[in-house]
Amino acid sequence: MARTCAGDVSAFADLVRRHHSAARRLALVSGAGNDADDVVQEAFVRAFNALAGFHADAAFRPWLLRIVVNLTRNSYRSRMRRAGLVFRAAQLREDGDAVDPQGVVLEAERDRRLWAMLRTLPDKDRQVLGCRYLLDLSEAETAEVLGWPRGSVKSRTSRALTRLRALVEPELAGERLHG
């Protein structure tokens, strides 16, 4: 990290290799859809430009991921503006992300269904579940990434899991009936 802060580009490339996957997963689960790769690239570029002000003792990953969340939010709003029509928002959420050709290729049917259900949750639910379980961040790291109080992370996680479970359980019940 110190080498990267000092502008060592090979060290920066190592950081990209190390954190790219987490950044991309978070962009995808946060709703970046087909913009995920652009969001991730821009996040790394901004991080690189801001390294001079970065505290080397601070954790790079939460800092980078926070940039990803903010950029995804802006990217989503931008896509909404480009779409022009508010009523298309829901359709974009469903179709834009469902197409997702660059994003999510999941081999396991179980993963595909869980991903589809996860995408139907509200933004904040997806973000908190993404941080906590897709990226395996702690509550403290999640709070830092999302800029929420730690208590909110805990309560939002619980509510989001309940919502997701309500979506998952009927499907599991169906599996039991047909299995």
């Binding site: 991309r24 869980l114 379980y133 479970r165």
Partner: peptide, 17 residues
Amino acid sequence: PLVRDLGDLGRALDRPP
């Protein structure tokens, strides 16, 4: 079980650049 499934999903999405 749901938390475990989410963890599995996270690993399935985990790909190096």
